[in-house]
Design a protein around this nucleic acid. Structure first.
Lengths: 213, 213
DNA sequence: TGTACATCAGTGAACGCGCGTTCACTGATGTAC
DNA sequence: TGTACATCAGTGAACGCGCGTTCACTGATGTAC
């Protein structure tokens, strides 16, 4: 055990916070994020309701922390994969694996937005970190010789994001297409819109991916 | 006013049911489906809470009715478009228009599923009516000469849905791809994942569509 | 090593709230003769 | 056209529930001398 420079009390706090989050995820997996209740978590932990207020100021702060963790978790999955030399295809499968691991966590990030809720700024930062990893994977590929599309031209003029990135707009376009296509299959699959159709969604995912690289 | 063969009381009931649903949609647009409350709707209508129980047995039945109406609304939009000779591209734009009209309605159908909730059978029927309209649009096109993909082969063996449809598996594949790609752009756009990136999601949607026809 | 004090985790009572839902009822609307 | 009866929409009181959150408190843990 390395000395992390934290006091025992700080370590204890971090541990309890983590335990609370774990129970929160369980509850979300069972009944959806909108059913998340501090009291219910406390009951599961064998602790009184108000005890949790030592660790999270209120329900909203807990949810925000969960959202942040979910983004962070995907960003780390991506970064780790990229550092091991993952190409676009490997990144795509990492995304799919991450989503299947906990569908409700996926939906907390990419599912129905709650009207009025605004994610904090740092979450936006993590989101663009994720996209950048994918973009980098495309930037490493030889660029396809196709003609410039109207959307490429539009991107050249309007890319506020990835503005400093060296990749040309055509590459940014490819990364965006990839991103949306993967989420198209994933979100429909995880929401159960393919059940009863007989085919294996994994193969559709791969088929989409093959069109993309 | 044509005689619909209904009694005044039946017409009144239908009207009040519709009014309840309208208020429900407003509430969903404002605070999301999970915040839907019969009492709140009643208050908005200037009526006591229990009054609504004359029209819906309980909260779940109201939500189910809303989901059914949402599916029906999209199916009608699609059917009407198809009957006016819409091609794949026109259907896609009809889908987009429908989604933008009321994003929360879109998410009620294609958004985060509530764990444990199972839509009734007739909704599944409407869902496949929608897909069939798209498939028909593809079936009317000259088939592309590309080689058979592994997923085409898989579909040939496992297409439980559209089993009786004359379209070859390659066409079914194209319709499924189209469906997932459009939803990929739409769901990310409506959830706000493109905000701050600067580009116009409508153009990405069209760009995806151009790859598809 | 021992004592005095400060910090802080967790408790239990309490608050007000809005929810879904039931029930016995009133009064208006429609039907049968 | 008028009366007697049945239907049914809506009311108001009431139920139990679980929620988020506050507060004053006890008791354990850590710190300073």
């Amino acid at each position: 055990m390395g000395d992390t420079g934290t006091t025992p009390r700080e370590r204890y706090r971090a541990q309890v916070r983590a335990e609370i989050k774990e129970h929160a995820w369980e509850q979300i997996a069972t009944a959806g994020a909108s059913a998340l209740s501090l009291n219910a978590i406390a009951k599961r932990m064998g602790v009184s309701g108000p005890a949790l207020y030592r660790y999270f100021a209120n329900r909203d702060e807990l949810i925000t922390a969960l959202i942040r963790d979910a983004y962070r978790s995907l960003a780390d999955t991506f970064r780790t994969a990229a550092e091991s030399g993952a190409d676009v295809s490997a990144l795509a499968h990492a995304l799919r694996g991450w989503a299947l691991e906990d569908p409700q966590r996926y939906f907390l990030v990419y599912g129905t937005p709650v009207p009025g809720y605004h994610a904090p700024d740092d979450v936006t930062t993590i989101a663009s970190e994720i996209m950048t990893t994918l973009l980098d994977a495309y930037a490493g590929l030889p660029s396809e010789g196709g003609p410039e599309t109207p959307f490429d031209a539009h991107l050249a003029d309007h890319r506020k994001w990835a503005d400093g990135h060296p990749a040309p707009s055509a590459t940014l376009h490819r990364a965006l297409s990839c991103w949306t296509r993967l989420h198209g299959v994933l979100s429909l699959e995880l929401a159960g819109h393919f059940t009863g159709m007989g085919f294996d969604p994994a193969l559709l995912f791969t088929a989409e991916l093959n069109d993309l690289t």
